[in-house]
Design a protein around this nucleic acid. Structure first.
Lengths: 396, 396
DNA sequence: CTGCTTTGTCCTGTGAGTGGAAAAAGTAGG
DNA sequence: CCTACTTTTTCCACTCACAGGACAAAGCAG
């Protein structure tokens, strides 16, 4: 199929496209109820969208008591590619225009291999998805990278954990390789957008999305829009000081949150505990695999191992203290906790909640849900698809 | 003079009013350069504004090489009232429609007297300004209160330092008493708007405005707009934990920033030091006045008193550590420090800068100015006038 | 006094958008 | 099957905002 290049010609069309994206197939009459346009105007704009092929007719809707309305929907052949590059693995997914995941591949990989090597893999994965018949091509792609991004240009800037990416023109390069429009953002921001689109944050305008993976970051959503800060590094909370004169961190300071709790820190702590034979469960796992990761800690905790639980609780406390400060400052309507370590589940969440509810004022915490993300590993790729669709479904 | 009740009829008129407010008198031709409207359309809108009396003709402009253009300006009889209620004093000012201060009164007062008593004073002060011939009446008033506000309704909610104000309908009551539209906001937010309108933050879209007075608060500006949070308590950084297991705070926790550094905390520390005879300067002042305030510490520091300087430095360090965290999180383009204790000047600022530049990542601090507010005690009232003018100069 | 520039006004054309009328396509009830 | 009522869709005339050109008014430079 020829790829779509059309873009909405005006704000009305953009509005309609987003309604169809978020609400699925819809009758013309239903659309009319949601936008404030006269029937005539609506008909004109819908007809123009049909001409662009972005939208197709989809039979007749059920009657609402009178003449049946014509259904329309986004072209079912539209395909978005969502790419979520983590520190140690990559997720690639294909979605339709309604941002439903049609296929999803995860593959371990080290970002430190550099952009060229990583994108080779990504393109291969995208190729595999195409080959399995899910897509003939892509109409747009969203890319998440684990570091700050100069958003308008789609270029990583000074990313601490991915040297070699600094200044690499991700957007331009991938746009070339994929032959479609591309948008690039921080992986944490994409997770926030994912949870906003299809997860727990659907109805909240101002919220925080804390992602605890190899590192720790925080997506900030203000008035329904991701806030990226002046240089694109907003939400970089991993290097907030959590422990005065605490552990040395890769950034040069001491006591950074990330040095005390994150996938990497947790694995290291677990290894230490295992070597000191503090925990039978962890020691056994270490001897079995030769190494330990956050997953092992989660499993040990699930098995009731006290040491593992203590590690999680202490990390949750540290994280909760930092979040408590952010809650006081930002007064969000929701805090979402996600990322790799969410396998630690409710032990972690309980520790965070305790600290936040204790450390912030009642007015800020009174009606503040603190919850785990709903989408797990798909949040990032859904957010990526959402990013590019927001871009494409806006007036040219 | 009859008070103006007119409001702009559309976004174009609102735009023009704001241009005249921020840029002063302007010729029709100059306005044409700034808005993207045809000359005919512009002429129509300007004529309509002239009819409303919000705008008046103001002679001929200098020639720009051809026919001279007609100047127009906001009606010079328009008057806004700016009220900044602090914990221990109140500022009331009259401005013209260009938000220039025509008269300004400050008066000591305790907010804990409650809203009725305070507003009696405020109305008396407004009356005094009227009596001195600065205004015949007010076309709008902005009110700042030292606590969280449910913004749309203009009602304080659960303000810690002003019991008795909780739920008091400030906006409605004052609107009645003054006979003009009223908007209410947190005093810190108003300070931020003041510095944005006429101070150091004129050209910055995303910035933080830290106000250190009796308490500590932080105005958050995102994309040029004040961010107030879900319940109106955003920026309430006084109760972020700055010292683990630190001093007990009025809020019930320990180690809150406000308990360790603020006008009140500083005064108490100074008294302690004076009583222990650690500082001749402070002891002398204590004996002379019977009490000490932040002003005394500032004076002692200016005289080179080591104890006073230490107090300031330590407070600055604590504050700087908290701000460092906020900078990592928010990635602002500017940090403004203001409020009562700015008398402490560069000693304070240096301590804050040291902590922020040390404690945040280079990408966030690389090009981050940290400066003192430019407007001093007038920031609040200018911000208040700006608040109500933004409201009035928007489409009805 | 003569060109040239800028500013303001007038006027007409265009395109977006509204809202009513009527046709088309249903449902519900006799 | 027919009738009365609903909802949806199309068609059309009308309004309104706005752009942009023509032209007059006003000023500058020589």
């Amino acid at each position: 199929m020829r790829r779509m290049t059309a873009r909405p010609a005006n704000a009305h069309q953009a509005r309609l496209l987003r309604l169809l994206r978020d609400g699925g197939p819809n009758s013309r009459a239903q659309l009319g109820d949601q936008v404030d346009l006269s029937r005539s105007k609506l008909a004109v704009e819908v007809d123009r969208l049909l001409e662009t092929d972005l939208v197709v007719a989809d039979g007749l809707a059920a009657s609402r008591g009178g003449r049946r309305s014509h259904n329309i929907r986004l072209n079912p052949h539209l395909r978005f590619l969502g790419v979520d590059i983590g520190a140690t693995s990559v997720d690639v997914a294909v979605t339709n225009a309604e941002l439903e995941i049609l296929g999803h591949i995860n593959q371990p990989m080290d970002v430190r291999e550099g952009p060229v090597a990583v994108f080779e893999h990504v393109l291969a994965m995208a190729g595999k998805l195409k080959a399995s018949g899910l897509a003939e091509g892509f109409d747009g792609a969203g890319i998440g990278v684990p570091g700050p991004v100069r958003f308008p240009e789609g270029i990583p800037v000074a990313p601490p954990i991915m040297p070699g990416w600094d200044g690499f023109p991700v957007r331009e390069a991938l746009s070339q390789d994929l032959g479609c429009p591309v948008m690039v953002d921080n992986d944490v921001n994409l997770m926030a957008m994912g949870e906003q689109h299809a997860g727990v944050a659907r109805t909240v305008a101002d919220f925080l999305c804390v992602k605890i993976g190899t590192g720790i970051g925080c997506g900030i959503v203000v008035g329904g829009e991701v806030y990226r800060g002046t240089t694109g590094s907003a939400g970089d909370i991993g290097h907030i000081q959590a422990v005065p004169d605490g552990r040395p961190c890769a950034c040069g300071n001491r006591g950074c949150l990330e040095a005390h709790f994150s996938g990497a820190a947790l694995a290291r702590d677990a290894m230490e505990a295992a070597e000191q034979r503090l925990s039978g469960e962890l020691t056994a796992r270490l001897e079995a695999n030769g190494t330990l990761s956050a997953v092992d800690v989660a499993a040990a905790a699930a098995a009731g191992d006290a040491t593992a639980l203590d590690l999680i609780r202490e990390g949750g406390n540290r994280t909760g203290q930092v979040i408590a400060g952010l809650v006081s400052f930002f007064n969000p309507g929701l805090v979402v906790v996600g990322g790799g370590v969410t396998g630690l589940g409710h032990t972690l969440l309980a520790a965070i909640r305790t600290q936040v509810y204790r450390g912030s004022l009642p007015l800020a915490t009174g009606n503040l849900p603190i919850v785990l993300g709903e989408l797990g590993p798909t949040a990032g790729v859904i957010g990526a698809a959402r990013l590019i669709s927001d871009h494409l479904f806006s007036p040219a």
